[in-house]
Structure formats: structure tokens, C-alpha cells
Design a protein around this nucleic acid. Structure first.
Lengths: 117, 117
DNA sequence: GCAACTTATTCATGAAACTGAATATATGGG
DNA sequence: CCCATATATTCAGTTTCATGAATAAGTTGC
């Protein structure tokens, strides 16, 4: 019995996780401090939700020096990635997602993982 | 603050609801006894989940005689309907969704709402 | 009105999930 | 080694959610 669908949708059913996933979907790769700054939630809270997403296979992480970067798991089935992308695109112009991206864009001292090299 | 996305995904995060929604998405319109027969769950359980989906605006219902028929709410934003359809299409060939449709197809004495008129 | 059928609701219970607060772990620089 | 920064985890409390069992409510036909 495959439980991926339920898992994916449960991941999207919490507002903190939805904000993180939307940022990751739109921005590509972000570290915890960028996510924390963008959505303005306590770091342990963000970290806990990211752990849940990691254990569910929704996101992948890798350390780069001091920072740990998260991204949408490229190994997800394409229909799941499509749904994540479609959702992010649709809700991006609404709050709180617009403000989240603004705060991210204005953040000073970003690790710069997604900067144009 | 718009909470539709979270609501939609929460609706899909329970297996009973996902099975009902998948059947509704693939079959169009079904009454409670058809859903109950297809997914083989107690009627009060199915009814409660359908009530939740109705209150969330995910499905719409209307009475026809003795039966109450449910369908995906046509008033949902198109991206939400797309996600419901895409999901149903993707998981349809897996269990338990294949068996659900078989039981529905083999059900005797169906109210026949979806019969060709 | 009564019986059969379909659907909805209430109640009590147990499990799961989210949270703040505090704390622990890991990395890099001096 | 010490300190600052970044991230993760534990704990306890509260709320939400799913469930079985029992029951109620609406419809049809007699």
C-alpha cells in the first residue's frame, strides 16, 4: 500500500511547511536561516518542520560549511514535483507568500547559495 | 489571509478522503452508499469525512430522492481542480484505488446517477 | 402511520500533531 | 581552546483529528 500521496499532502497542509516549500520551489535552494528570516518564525520551529519534510522525502538537504541548504527533493515522482510547482506558482501572488519573498530578497548577509555566480 | 491551500491539502491527507475524492474525480458523481460500498468503510465514517469535505468547500452535494450525491465542487479554483484531477489520474492505477473502482463497477443496484441518460 | 432504506450526528476515547522554551550539537575563526 | 553562529533535538502542554458504537433524521412506498 503506497502512502506517498497522503504524505505529500500532509506536508502541504501546514502553513509553516507550505511557506517553506513555496519559497524552496520558487527560489531553488535555501538555508535554514534564510527560511527563518523570510517567514519570521522561531528557528527551532522551522527546523522541526524541515526535519519532518526531510524524513518524508519531500525535501533534500546538504551541508555547505556552516549552513545546511534545503531544496525540493529532485527524486520525487514528476507528478508530485508538478503539484508542488503548480501550487507555489498559484499561491505566490497572495499573502503571506509575497511578503515572505520580499523579506528574503531584502535579507542582508545571505549565504548567497542562489546568487548568480 | 487565504487558507484554501492548507484546507485542500488537509482534505487530501487522509486516506479515506483521498479514496472518496479519487472516486469522485474519476467517476463524476456518486452517492454515499456507492462510496461506502466501493471503499468498504462503515457508513458513518464515510459520512463524516464527506461532511468535512463539504464544509471545506471541496465537494458539493445534492439530494435526489433517497440518495445524496456528491461531486467535486465545480466552483473550486481551476488550479485546485487540476490538482485533484492530476492526483486522481496518477494514483488510479495503484492500490487501493484500483480495487475501489472494481467494487464500484460490480456493485448491484446502483442508483445509476452516472448512467448514460 | 409504519417499515425499509439512506444518510447524518453525537459521544467518548485514543492517537497524532503543533508549539514555546530550553538545551544540545556542529562548524568556523581567532 | 573559546566564542559566535547555525542548526537540531528534547520536553511538556494543548489542541486537533480519526474512530467505533450508538442513535437520530429524512425519504419512499404501502
Amino acid at each position: 500500500m503506497n502512502k506517498l500521496p497522503e504524505t505529500v499532502f500532509k506536508a502541504l497542509s501546514d502553513s509553516t511547511r507550505l511557506r517553506c516549500l513555496t519559497l524552496l520551489s520558487l527560489e531553488g535552494e535555501l538555508c535554514v536561516c534564510e527560511l527563518t528570516h523570510a517567514i519570521q518564525m522561531p528557528q527551532p520551529k522551522v527546523s522541526r518542520h524541515l526535519a519532518l519534510l526531510r524524513e518524508s522525502g519531500i525535501v533534500a538537504d546538504h551541508r555547505r560549511g556552516q549552513w545546511i541548504f534545503y531544496r525540493i527533493n529532485p527524486g520525487l515522482p514528476s507528478w508530485v514535483r508538478d503539484i508542488l510547482e503548480r501550487t507555489a506558482r498559484e499561491i505566490a501572488p497572495t499573502e503571506p507568500f509575497v511578503l515572505d519573498r520580499e523579506r528574503l530578497a531584502n535579507m542582508v548577509g545571505r549565504p548567497g547559495a542562489t546568487c548568480v555566480v
